[in-house]
Structure formats: structure tokens, C-alpha cells
Simulated scan of single mutants.
Amino acid sequence: MTRTSSSSSDRGAGAVGGVALAAPPEQPARRASLGRRVSVQIGRKVVAALVVLWGAATVAFFAQTALPGDRATVILNIRAGQAQVRTPAELAQINEQYGLHRPLIVQYFDYLGGLVRGDFGTSYQQFRPVTAIIGEQLGATVILSLTAILFAWVLMVVWVTLTAGRGPKLGAVGSTVDVFAAGLPAYWLGIILLLVFALGLRWFPVLSGSGVDGLILPALTLAIPLAGFMAQSTRTEFERALDQPFVLSARMRGMGDWGIRLRHVLRHAVIPAVTLSGWALGATLSGAVIVESIFNRPGIGSVLVSAVNSQDLPVVVGIVTLVAVVYVVANLLVDIVYTLVDPRLELS
């Protein structure tokens, strides 16, 4: 009886030939399960992004068809530079050229197919592919957007590091400035910066052009509100991180206040700002439309203004669709990176 009990005990412990075997490891199974969950989560995000893009493209297409008037007549009037009565032969030629004689559903699927291939159509005014028109000016806008994001990060880090966790009075001042900066409209801020630093102090050119010195004021116009948004989310995390045990440990090791803030606290506090960076890229691209007009900079902003004034719908829709794509793709990439770096953020 004792031997039977002992044998049962050995089998329960995984003993073979008198040698105890370790229990089968569970870690690989857990990793495989986590990997599957992460893959499913990323797949959902990709599908959601595609649905958003499809929705944006659909709205852009039907917005064109909902405008009053005959599209063929509009195209001919744009080319002629004046409105006049068109003959049926002229209208038939334009309808054939742009496929406007086909059923609306066929035009819609042709439009979606063109977007998948990167074809936004042909400009009514310039008779060139929209992608070529946008591509000529996109580089200047991208440089402006990236510079604005860089400035926003610098402003946010300096301001939050200086004011967060410094006591209730300075903290209140910091929070108030965050909210005020985030609410500044770009068109108003741009005009103020132009009046003070270009016309008043003459530190920068009035017409920005494409030079480096003409990039500062437009980038600051986009960066200051963005820095306010990021500072609001970063400040809370910064103050929370100051109360963590690793801060006390660093102080006990003799590290100074600035070293603790910059080397330890800041890297824990900027996670919300990193998340906002995906949104910021799309926001600065769309905000560049206004800023480029104020400072007379080259870019897709000037192209969009010209296209709206001339009713060049393919160019307008192309730029709007491009901004939507940047918004969605940038946020998708940020979400995917976060899911891969720490799946618990998405799967908890």
C-alpha cells in the first residue's frame, strides 16, 4: 500500500526511473497566446484604419457629385475662365473624357480604384495629374510640419520641466499657460507673430518664401498650440512620476533635481506626448494650409487655396484625401508600435 502510494506520488511529480522531471514550461505557451492576441489587435487596428480611409474617400467623392450644376459645364467654364452656355457637343466631349456619362456607381468604383493605385485624377485647370501637382509642393509642407513638431517637443519639454512639480502656484501658472497655448487659433497667432517679429522687430522676413529664416515663424505658429496640447497630457504624468520610488532612490544616490527630471522622470512622462505625435503630423499638415497662406510660403496650402478659388475639385479632393491618409496612417503606426512595445497597454 505504501509502495502504491509512493508510485502514485512519483508519477504525479513526473518521476521517471527515479529521476524527477521538471514540470513542462508554460512560458512558451503564454508567449504564443500573447503573440496571437497582439496579432489580432493589430489586425483590428488595420481594418479600422481602412474603414476610416474608405469613409473619407466616399465622403469626398459624393461631395463632388452633390455640388450644384453640371460638372462638365463647370470644367469647361474653368478652362475658359468665364461662365457661358455650352453646346451639347462640348459637354459630350468632356463627359466622355472624364467618364461623367457613366453610371454614378461605376464612377465611384473607378474613383476608389484610382485611389488604391495612387491616382487622384486630373486637374480641371492645369490638365495634369493631381498627384504631380501635389507632389511638387508636398516637400515644403512636410518640412514645415516636421519642423513644427520638433519645435513643439522642445517647447513642451522645457516648459513642463521648468514648471511641473514646483509647487501649487507655479503649477497653476504652468497649467494655465498650457490651456491658453492649446486654444490659440493658428490664423490669429500667425498674424501676431508676423506683426511683432517680422514687421515690428524685423527679425524675420515678411514673406517667408522657401528660405530657412522664413521657416521659423510659420513653424512656431503650428508648434505653440501643439506644445500646449502635449504639455497638458505630459504634466500630469510628470507630476505622478515625481512621486515614484525611483525618484527617491535617485535622490538618495545624490542625483540633483535637474538630473532626476531629465534622466528619469521625463522619459516616463512623455508617453502621452508620443501618442499625440501621430495626430500631430496630420494636424500640422492640415494647419499648414492656413499658415502657408498667412506667410506666403510654398506648399499644398497655396495649391489648395488656388484650387478652391478656381473650383478645381480633383485637386481639392486629392489634398483632403491626402491629409486624411496621413492622419490615419500616422495614428495607426503609433498604435501598432505601442502594442508591440507593451501589449498590456492594449490587452489589459
Rank of each mutant, 00 (worst) to 15 (best):
Ser6Thr: 14
Asp312Pro: 09
Val274Ala: 10
Leu266Gly: 05
Val40Arg: 15
His268Ser: 12
Ile224Ala: 00
Ala288Glu: 08
Leu281Met: 12
Thr2Val: 12
Ala23Val: 13
Ser175Ala: 15
Gly214Thr: 09
Tyr327Trp: 13
Val47Tyr: 07
Ile271Phe: 12
Asn77Tyr: 04
Ala13Leu: 14
Glu346Thr: 15
Gly190Asn: 02
His268Glu: 12
Arg263Lys: 14
Pro24Val: 13
Val316Arg: 00
Ala63Asp: 03
Asn309Val: 09
Ala182Arg: 08
Gly259Trp: 09
Thr141Ala: 02
Leu144Asn: 02
Val46Ser: 07
Leu184Gly: 04
Val160Ile: 05
Gln126Gly: 00
Arg128Cys: 00
Leu195Ile: 12
Ile149Gly: 00
His101Asn: 15
Leu144Thr: 06
Thr236Ile: 14
Pro218Gly: 06
Gly167Leu: 04
Pro218Trp: 01
Ser210Asp: 15
Leu155Val: 04
Pro28Gly: 11
Leu194Thr: 04
Leu332Glu: 05
Gly174Glu: 05
Met1Lys: 13
Pro185Trp: 07
Thr221Met: 03
Ile224Lys: 05
Ala186His: 14
Leu67Gln: 15
Ile42Pro: 00
Thr4Leu: 14
Ser293Met: 07
Leu242Tyr: 08
Leu215Asp: 00
Gly190Met: 08
Val47Glu: 06
Ala182Met: 12
Val274Arg: 07
Val341Gly: 02
Ile134Phe: 05
Met1Val: 11
Ser175Pro: 02
Leu112Cys: 07
Glu239Gln: 14
Thr147Arg: 03
Gly17Asn: 12
Val305Gln: 10
Leu76Arg: 01
Gly17Tyr: 05
Thr2Arg: 14
Ala330His: 08
Thr147Tyr: 01
Thr321Ala: 10
Trp279Lys: 06
Arg235Tyr: 06
Ala288Cys: 05
Val323Ser: 01
Ala307Trp: 01
Val142Ala: 10
Leu262Glu: 07
Leu76Gln: 01
Val270Ser: 03
Leu217Trp: 04
Gly14Ile: 04
Gly214Pro: 08
Asp70Cys: 09
Met230Phe: 05
Thr73Ala: 15
Gly12His: 13
Ala219His: 05
Asp257Ile: 13
Leu76Phe: 07
Ser277Leu: 07
Ala324Thr: 03
Val59Lys: 01
Val270Leu: 11
Met255Ile: 13
Pro205Met: 00
Val46Ala: 07
Phe246His: 11
Val160Gln: 03
Arg79Thr: 09
Val274Ile: 15
Ala22Val: 12
